[in-house]
Design a protein around this nucleic acid. Structure first.
Length: 219
DNA sequence: CTCCCGATAT
DNA sequence: ATATCAGGAG
C-alpha cells in the first residue's frame, strides 16, 4: 500500500503531466453526456466522438430516441460496438426519463444508476462532469493505473478501488485527479506499452520497478 | 461469471 | 492474430 506521502507525490506529478485533463467526450448538456458515456463502454472516446456529432444532430430529445425504430438507432451507432444492447439501453433510458424524471437527467447518483445502461461508473461521470459533484469514476484506466502504482491490490474490485481512492485523495481533488488518472493511463501508462522509461512516477511505482528489475535496470 | 461487438493499436 | 477500448446487464 502506498503511503500518504506517495499519494501526494503521485497527484503532484500527474498534475504536472496533465494540468488540463478533462472529459474528452463531446457533449453540450447532461443528456448528451449520459448518452456519450453509455456509448463509451468498451470503446475509445475518440470513436464515440466520431459518431456523436451526427447522432446528436439527429436526436435532440428523449422523445427522438423513443420514436425511432430500434433498427435505425442500432444502425446509427453500429460503429461503436455492442450496438444492439446499447441501442436497447438508450431507448429504455429515454423512456424512463420521460416517465419518471420529466425528460431530464437526474442529478442524484442513486437515481442515475436506476437508468438502463447506467452503472456506477457512468453515474459517477455524469454526476461529476455534468453536475459538479465530487466523484471518482473507476474505469479501465483508473483501475489499471491504481493497481500498477500499488495504490490498491490487484485483486480489488472496481468498487474497492474507488473507495481506496476516495479515502486517499482529498474530496476537493476527486474530480481533477480522476481525469488526470485517466489521461495518465490513456496516454502514458498505457495498457499494452506503458512508458516506464520516461515515467516521473517510476520511483513510487510497484509495477514499474518490477518491470525495470526484470530488464536488469537499477532504479 | 458470460455475453455483448466494431475499431484500432501492437 | 491478438489485446484493448471512459462497462453494464442477466
Amino acid at each position: 500500500m502506498q503511503s500518504k506521502k506517495n499519494m501526494e507525490f503521485i497527484l503532484t506529478k500527474i498534475g504536472e503531466m496533465f494540468p488540463d485533463a478533462e472529459c474528452e467526450l463531446n457533449h453540450s448538456n447532461p443528456f448528451e453526456l449520459t448518452i456519450a458515456v453509455l456509448l463509451s463502454a468498451q470503446c475509445t472516446d475518440a470513436l464515440v466522438n466520431k459518431v456523436t456529432p451526427d447522432l446528436f444532430s439527429k436526436y435532440k430529445t428523449p422523445e427522438d430516441y423513443i420514436q425511432v425504430p430500434i433498427e435505425e438507432l442500432e444502425n446509427d451507432i453500429r460503429r461503436i460496438g455492442l450496438f444492439r444492447s446499447k441501442a436497447k439501453h438508450i431507448k429504455q433510458l429515454c423512456q424512463s426519463l420521460v416517465e419518471n424524471y420529466g425528460g431530464e437527467i437526474p442529478k442524484d447518483k442513486s437515481e442515475l444508476v436506476k437508468l438502463a445502461g447506467v452503472g456506477r461508473k457512468t453515474a459517477n461521470v455524469v454526476a461529476s462532469v455534468a453536475f459538479g459533484e465530487p466523484a471518482i469514476a473507476v474505469d479501465t484506466h483508473v483501475e489499471r493505473v491504481s493497481k500498477r502504482l500499488g495504490i490498491c491490490r490487484w485483486k480489488d474490485s472496481v468498487l474497492e478501488v474507488e473507495k481506496t481512492l476516495m479515502k486517499k485523495i482529498p474530496e476537493e481533488e476527486w474530480s481533477v485527479s480522476h481525469h488526470r488518472f485517466i489521461f495518465f493511463g490513456r496516454y502514458h501508462c498505457k495498457a499494452q506499452s506503458p512508458k516506464c522509461d520516461e515515467c516521473p512516477l517510476l520511483e513510487v511505482c510497484r509495477e514499474g520497478k518490477k518491470r525495470m528489475k526484470k530488464r536488469g535496470v537499477f532504479v
